[in-house]
């Protein structure tokens, strides 16, 4: 398996990268290459030019603000979330999700920007950004714009990043003191893309009841989805019963597809079980792994 021939450039500034995209229609951005290179090798795409983002300083920059908000440059490697305790503490849901992405070697190379722009329906990062209400910064020839995670994932492998644009950063709002999280997924093997997964962020009120919940389900549709009704049904409640009901509601609203890895029916079952489990973790009614 070899890719078709292509040209390669590694510009040092964002401006140069945007200019290259403008000058070469069909050019592709190269981040960690962990999704793009397999696509090239299988000859599912044959771009004439690859624009490597690795030398552009601002894409690698991350900022942890005083209030706890975290801005990650698009070229931030997944592995940072296993290595940097400050980043982990700032965004515990991301820290729980990242070890489920592929294998160490892939997490060393793969980037958050690449994962978000590739927008695999079973990928962890898109769901985490949805659950955390993150915002993406996109640069284009006309300047920079910001898109909320809820509007970013537009379809199967499709995002709000337009032709000639570059995702530069992702901003996670500060993690509130009373936010709890849960993360659960089922994959056939360690490191495989999930059959279904759930990333949940739950804000509690002073009495420990749910004030607001964001439950992102991935692997069950063309793009990650927020289980809105399930989240609403949680408000004001606590405990295992609430988690169970949310699981049922999520299942009722999401209609997964079959493929040869799993049937739609099995995926539906997993939606219910995993929503229940993720919320169980968030609400403190179940151990992190089981039940």
């Amino acid at each position: 398996m070899r890719p078709a021939a292509f040209d390669y450039r590694a510009p040092a500034t964002l401006g140069e990268a945007l200019a290259l995209l403008a000058a070469h229609p069909g050019a592709k951005l190269l981040a960690g290459g962990q999704s793009l290179v397999p696509v090239l090798n299988l000859r599912l795409a044959a771009p004439p030019l690859l624009v490597d983002l690795r030398r552009i300083p601002e894409l690698a920059r991350s900022v942890l603000e005083h209030d706890g908000a975290l801005t990650l440059g698009a070229m931030t490697r997944h592995r940072v979330f296993e290595r940097d305790a400050r980043v982990r503490a700032a965004q515990p849901l991301a820290a729980a999700a990242v070890p489920h992405i592929a294998h160490v070697a892939i997490r060393n190379r793969g980037t958050i920007g690449g994962s978000l722009c590739h927008a695999d329906p079973a990928a962890e990062w898109p769901a985490v950004t949805l659950a955390c209400d993150a915002a993406m910064t996109i640069a284009g020839s006309a300047g920079t714009r910001t898109v909320d995670a809820a509007d970013f994932f537009t379809g199967l492998f499709e995002t709000a990043v337009g032709t000639g644009e570059i995702l530069t950063a992702v901003r996670f709002p500060a993690w509130p003191a009373r936010r709890r999280h849960g993360f659960a997924e089922v994959a056939r093997r360690h490191g495989d893309f999930a059959l279904v997964g759930v990333a949940a962020a739950v804000d509690l009120d002073e009495r420990g009841a749910v004030a607001l919940a964001r439950i992102a389900v991935f692997g069950a549709a063309d793009a990650p989805v927020l289980a809105q009704e399930a989240a609403q049904a949680l408000v004001g409640r606590r405990g295992e019963g609430a988690a169970r009901e949310a699981g049922r509601l999520a299942r009722a609203r999401i209609a997964p597809r079959s493929d040869h890895h799993a049937s739609a029916e099995y995926r539906s079952e997993l939606v219910e079980v995993l929503v229940r489990r993720a919320l169980g973790q968030a609400l403190g009614v179940a151990p992190a792994k089981a039940a």
Partner: peptide, 8 residues
């Protein structure tokens, strides 16, 4: 897609 168990 052919799923052999890996070391993990």
């Amino acid at each position: 897609d052919y799923k052999m168990p890996l070391s993990l």
